[in-house]
Every structure is written in C-alpha cells, then in structure tokens.
Amino acid sequence: MLEELLFQLEMSAPQIVLGLVNGAFYALLSLGLAVIFGMLNVINFAHGAQFMMGAFVAWMLLNWLGIPYWGALVLSPLIVGAFGVVLERTMISRLYKLDHLYGLLLTFGLALIIEGVFRNQFGSSGLPYSPPAALTGAPIDLGFMMLPKYRVWVVVAAMVICLATWLVIEKTRLGAYLRAATENAPLVQAFGVNVPRMITLTYAAGVALAALAGVLAAPIYSVNPGMGSSFIITVFAVVVIGGMGSILGSVITGFGLGLVEGLTKVVYPEASATVIFVIMAIVLLARPAGLFGRA
C-alpha cells in the first residue's frame, strides 16, 4: 500500500512541476484578459491572436533584424502593444456604450482575420525558434525528473510579472486611478485624470502581456498561427472559474488549473483537454461569480 503510494507520488511529482509551467502561461494570459475586462468591460477574444503575434514578432525580430530573444522580450510586447493602441483607438473604443456582445464579436472577428493573415503568410506548421543560449544545455536534474532550464525561467518570469502587475494595480497611485475609473469614470475625469487615454493604455498593457506570454512560449511550442486559439478557450475557462476581472483570481486559478491538468495527464490523459471545462461547469453551478469574483 505504502509502496504504491510512493510510486504514485514519484509519478505525480514531475507532472506537478510541468503543470506549474503550463499554469504560468494560463496565469499570464488570463491576467491580461482580467485587466482588460476589469477596466474596459470588453471580452477580448483577440487575446489568443495577440499572444500568437507576440511569438511571431519575436521570430521576425530574430530572423529579419537579428535581435535575439532578450531584446524580443522587451520589443515584441511594445510592438504588439502599439498595435493594441491602434485597435482600441480605431475600433474597440466605439463599442463601449453598446452591449458586451459587440465587443466580443468585434474582437473575435479580429482574431480570425489576424490568424488568417499569418496563416496565409507563414503556413500552419510553424517556424523554428530556439531558446536563448544561456537557457539551453543539459536539463536540470531535480532527482525525480529532468527539467529544462528554459521551463524554470518561464515559471519564474511569469510569477514575477503576475506579482508586478498585481502590485501596480493594487498598491500604486496609477492603480488607484485605474480602479477608481472602473467604479466611476466621470468622477475621476472631473478630478483631471485623462480617462480615455488611461483606458487605451490599459488595453495596450493587457495586449502587451499577451505578447510577452507569446515570446515566452515561442521556444517551447512551434511558432504557428494556431498557437493562440488552442490556448484561448482554456484561458477563458480559467478567467470564468477565477471570476471575471479578478486579478488575483486569474493568477491563482491559472496556476491551479495548470496543476489539475498536469495530474489528469497521468491519471486519465484522454480527459486532459476536458477537465478544465468540467471544473468550470461545477464552479458555475456552485459559485456563479467565480471563485474570486464578486457577484
């Protein structure tokens, strides 16, 4: 009995570690979604496409301009974020007064168009992108598994970014303005804060977070136009489970569901794509506002 338990533990420990890595991506992506939804009340369906763009821009920077991974980590979110500014100014900002459905349809349509353009240009099977030299080489031996250095970096980077975002929103003056504007925008504007610009920049920041996750993902997954859409449905489930618009909720749920998914891959791998949605259904029945949301 004890032996079997130990064996199970030996089998599960590595999966927990890997679950954290996937959870890091879920957390980063759902964080961006939560920021955008919390501030703009827009369900950003183009988030997956923007994640994909982040990875592609990193590839372009490397292959067309010779800018390596570390440069791309900064530049790619800025470039895709600027693209977000254009989207927000020219299209999304016109929909704030309408029902959520319009924002959803617009961003969903944008996602299809962006993916289609990239697919036409680069094909569907993806482009090679290697991890930076400092993070390649022999995997780290943890005793119970070999963990590639790059995956450790992903988890650490994601945690730092999540924490920083949370601190900015909860503990700084800028964050206070943001939160105040969510509650009552006209009042904040009356105090002399440029609310429309703040909203634009918030959208850009959410998009930049997606792009950053894309750069982090580029060396692990093949850089292909569909890489975002395979993530995004799961990430939406994460956001719903965590509670729409809740920053802390999306981060914790992101990592937590990564773990659950990882364990499912050992116990019953066929269900690993479904388990998150089963949890979502249960959470919606028991707590309709999500685990960390306010009804």
């Binding site: 890997l18 679950g19 890595v21 997954y221 395979s230 993530f231 050992v266 791998p269 690993s272 794509a273």
Partner: peptide, 13 residues
Amino acid sequence: VRHPFPGTTDFSS
C-alpha cells in the same frame, strides 16, 4: 499514452 486531438500543444507530460 493518448493525447487529445486536436488542441494539445504541450507534450512534456
């Protein structure tokens, strides 16, 4: 081990 199709991107497990 059987992985879901389509939609699996992470094969590390």
